[in-house]
Design a binder for these strands. Structure first.
Lengths: 223, 223, 223, 223
DNA sequence: AATGAATGAGAGTTCATTCAT
DNA sequence: TATGAATGAACTCTCATTCAT
């Protein structure tokens, strides 16, 4: 599990810079936190469980983090950074915006399937650290909106659409589809699927394509 | 605040039927719980706070509910019942399915604006009582899907759409739009808006209409 | 189950005399208390459980008893009265004191097997109502001691024995034998035996006989 | 007050080994528990009272014990171990089995007088932790029975006696004698006696001696 | 840099008892 | 005579955090 945020705060809770050993301990704690928060949720999780999972003593935790909420917040930022990275990488090969949307969702679902912590931790942030959830959503929406607006200028998507509203709608749709068809879906053995059902992705693509594509009469801009 | 569920459990925690006085006390407790859970969230809420709010003694709570989680669960069911009632009432005057969708969202947003507890309580159920959240979503989706399937048979919406996927996508979209433009929006006085910005509702309607409407070449069924 | 004490307090908690109906309710409550205390012990038992068992409402209990401890105390007295009655009846046909001892124990064990509440309730009195336990033991010992003293005067048992010490010793012995071979013994089906193993009773009789019988050289008094 | 069990569990509630400081705290808690349980009984006792008595914070208790019942159980084991140690030490100088019995009772009474917790705690175990009481009695009886059987082989006590029955009878006798003449006896100042009345011990010895000694006609085995 | 014993506020829950009906 | 809703003190137990080592 690789942990990389936009602005990696590789310093101790007291602000001192860290030695190599310190950085390692810190990373182990953050990874343990991801595991424990994902498995148990914020309130069932405890610092003891995190430190046990990380194989360090209880007190050590407070050398690197200000407290329970602080690790949690950092974890949300970290997951946000990673899921956006996964999505933008998936979209990078798209020929047009609508293909980009499909690839973006594919990347999102792939990340979700591989990191169930994303939902469990990020969505719980709504109740633990509301500002973090807002930040998470807004960062994703920002990317969306920028892409949609550019595509609109290029005539790739319908001019009448409100890119802000559409961006939020798409994110909401993606989130619930992921929850329904990835997190709640169980195969014969009761295990969650490793990837989303292609038929669902197709259904989602059809829905999005219809919503976004320009009207047939709509004049395309040159480019 | 009116409390009405599909199957109102007007009995005590021990299952005995209640006197009039008992029913009143129970309802006051459930209403207090809605208030307190909405204001503070599940974990910050406490039975003491609920009983204080209801103006009864601590022990009284346990005459009517099995515990903290039990009131919470009942509250989720109650809110689910009420929001669905609000939506179906709003949709009842629609001329066609696409208008029904718009009216349904309008009803949903109106309920959300009037009962912030819906989001705060229901979404938190994901972490407190996952089965309740699933139930909540599934009950709403069931209605959606049935309406979409019927409309598809009538040629009111595109035949190619996967009604299940669309139903979940629409619900997710509606949820995040509501969160963004109702719960997070503040007017000049820092108060949340009493109703959703009509422009947003229009944007959403455009999005949905484009996604659902049959292709122009698509043959309509007679009616 | 018949309830009869030396001094049956057939009056309400407030001291008023009782109607026939009142007496019935009171007796049902006392019998329910015996059952519930025996099954659950004093602390696990609750007034609600007793009244439910008796088929009356909670408040009714306080019409007849001063409280939880009060029923308990009355129950101890009642059981004491009944076990002593059972023992003295069993001893009534004895030819001599040593036979009387054997028959007395037999009666005690029979009562114990039929009324497990005796142990459960009476022994718990040590911690709930110490004065009641003392009374229980002393009443039994009084009978013992009187019988032993008379037998000593008649030369049926050894003159050197301290009747007080012997009475307490015999009662203690009987109590632990009953606990070990009746309450803790389970047959093939895991059920407690309906009567004590005759071999055990023989063993006990041998022990007592040896301890009590006069020395062979000891002169018997005429009778 | 020295605390020593057969198998001293010098580990925390979570099973981790303890530092010196931790072991000290644990021992202080166990001693405080002995005091508090003996003074108040199981149900009146509370963790708060135990920790206050021990001079530590409430939470500290749970570092070392799993809960109220757990300390109680450990205390029963501890007392059992100590009283048996006291008895076997007292018996070690006996010339024959009958003298051993007398010395054993003396040791038991001495321990009882010095540690009233023995009765109060161990007998209450019948209702709090029945398995513990059984264990307590059985461990004592095991020693008794072994001694009696050996003595029987040596012809020191009557061959006809059932050693199992006799062992339980003797223990029961000793327990009630101790209760009557130590715990319930008060001197002029209302204080319990520091040691048992020698006359009672003599009475008990006479009783036991008569019961156990071989018949005069019984042939002794050579040794 | 790391340890782990100690803290104590605060939670959910139970139940004997009262009293208006 | 009977009811059962209401009370609230007291309990056990948890866990984020501190700090001496």
């Amino acid at each position: 599990m690789t942990v990389h945020t936009d602005d990696p705060p590789v310093s101790s809770a007291t602000g001192r810079p860290l030695t190599t050993r310190g950085r390692q301990t810190r990373r182990r704690l953050l990874e343990a936190a991801e595991q424990v928060f994902a498995d148990l949720g914020y309130h069932e999780a405890s610092i003891v469980k995190i430190t046990e999972h990380a194989g360090v003593a209880l007190g050590t935790f407070y050398l690197y983090f200000d407290g329970k909420q602080a690790v949690f917040d950092e974890l949300v930022l970290d997951l946000n950074s990673r899921v956006r990275h996964s999505m933008s990488e998936a979209m990078s090969t798209a020929a047009d915006r609508i293909e980009a949307e499909r690839l973006g969702f594919e990347g999102f679902f792939r990340f979700t399937a591989a990191h169930p912590a994303l939902y469990r931790v990020v969505r719980e942030a709504e109740f633990v650290s509301p500002a973090m959830l807002k930040l998470h959503y807004e960062r994703i929406v920002d990317g969306y909106r920028a892409g949609l607006a550019a595509a609109q200028r290029d005539g790739e998507i319908a001019a009448e659409l409100d890119t802000d509203v559409v961006a939020w709608a798409l994110m909401g749709a993606g989130e619930l589809i992921g929850m329904r068809y990835l997190l709640w879906e169980k195969d014969a053995d009761g295990r969650p699927p490793a990837q989303i059902d292609p038929a669902v992705l197709d259904g989602m693509t059809a829905f999005i394509t219809r919503a976004l594509r320009p009207d047939t009469t709509e004049g395309k801009t040159d480019d």
